[in-house]
Design a protein around this nucleic acid. Structure first.
Lengths: 233, 233
DNA sequence: GCGTTCAGATTTGAATGCAAAATCAGGAGA
DNA sequence: TCTCCTGATTTTGCATTCAAATCTGAACGC
């Protein structure tokens, strides 16, 4: 007796029993990326412990991990704060992401399965739907998903992880973008071309398109950040 | 009273008082990169605590941070191991590093100060000295420094950090490289060209040279890993 | 002989406790 | 009123403790 029952229990536990620090890191990362925890905000251990219903040990582990991801900054003996958004840092990050996207484009043309291309096309149409309705949030979500899918289609997990990490940092600034209708329309057209290049496996063209697309994004974000700084002053 | 004395103490403490988890993470990272802690090796908390003379709390924090850096793997309820070296993973990492080096080359041509170029040249000569004496370890050290300096000369801190992190993972495999005299000589010649391109601020050429240099490195490492796998079997 | 099972030892996960540092509040003095 | 000091309070850093899971290995049944 007990063998089958035990197997059942093991399966259950697999699902329910996740390390606490993982749960916490996901929670905090979400809150930071969503902007609920604002850039520069202090992370008070006691408060967060109460909110999350855990002790300080796993919380502190999660904070340390977020620090190496770059989402929070550790101030020795003074706790941690959400990494402030600096225009220069965003620009630098986007620049690196551009290099990664270029590489991903090349690799994706060589390695992407037809199913992956089809999925990216599907996401593209979802994005078009949101664009047509003028739903910015939904548009952003699918835009993100498409870029991530292209990165994944490279078949290089290191590339994917690196990109993801950088992306988390940049996503916090997205609400600043406040893009104009013209820029929005242009971005959609660029995506059309990107999809076409990928579908036809034109690596050189895809690489160029991704680089240009990102350059426009950088310009847009930089302009928004400049406005923002001006408004704040 | 005490004002001046306190200022003195503060200054002293600044130097001596470094968070323990930082000390620990540096120690462990070194040991892992040096190969003292071998790929796949288990990290026993009790043992490491005794060796480092600390309690488990800062050790566990350091391990978590190394996990997000990718140097160790966390096995829930079963501790942590040094991330095993997989040929595919090394290849993927080098591929990403190549993209970063290309970008860094372009940026460095635009942004590097003359002092930085001079420093890279100086490091280059140091490297030549080690090459001339056939000192592999010294050669590797300066080789690394040169590449890092070029990355730094890009003036993009995000790029530098990302590269550093990936590099730590790859450095563990360097002792496998076991490069031939021919490849060694070729690498030195390539470095001559790289330096020349940087000094003349020829971004396109530098980018191409760095890409080629890295492609050769990938080939060399892959060959070594294949040999190694064959020897192990 | 071989696989199972189960108690004891180890090891990890998380909570709690304690000391040092930083922050805050209030008051003395210029 | 402002500045500087001082002591209380809070907060962080690290150690210790407790609980739960894993590992070990020997007895047991097949």
């Amino acid at each position: 007796m007990g063998t089958i029952e035990n197997l059942g229990n093991v399966a259950e536990r697999r699902i329910e029993r996740r390390p606490l620090h993982e749960e916490v890191i996901d929670q905090l990362r979400d809150r930071i990326v969503q902007g609920e925890l604002e850039p520069g905000a202090r992370l008070n251990e006691r408060v967060l412990c109460e909110q999350l219903g855990i002790s300080r040990t796993p919380l502190r582990e999660a904070i340390k991990m977020l620090a190496t991801e770059g989402l929070v900054e550790l101030l020795p003996n003074r706790g941690a704060i959400v990494t402030p958004l600096k225009a220069a840092n965003i620009a630098d990050t986007l620049s690196v992401m551009g290099a990664l996207e270029s590489l991903a484009g090349e690799l994706a043309c060589a390695n992407a399965s037809e199913a992956e291309v089809a999925e990216i096309r599907a996401l593209h149409f979802e994005m078009l739907a949101h664009h047509a309705r003028g739903e910015l949030a939904g548009y952003f979500r699918y835009n993100q998903l498409i870029h991530l899918k292209i990165i994944e289609a490279s078949g290089n997990p290191v590339l994917t992880n690196t990109y993801r990490q950088l992306n988390a940092n940049v996503r916090r600034a997205r609400y600043m973008a406040n893009l104009s209708q013209e820029r929005w329309d242009a971005a959609v057209r660029e995506h059309e071309e990107i999809l076409a290049a990928l579908a036809s496996r034109d690596a050189a063209r895809l690489k160029r398109l991704l680089a240009e697309h990102l350059a426009h994004k950088v310009a847009s974000v930089m302009a928004a950040l400049a406005d923002n700084a001006a408004a704040a002053a």
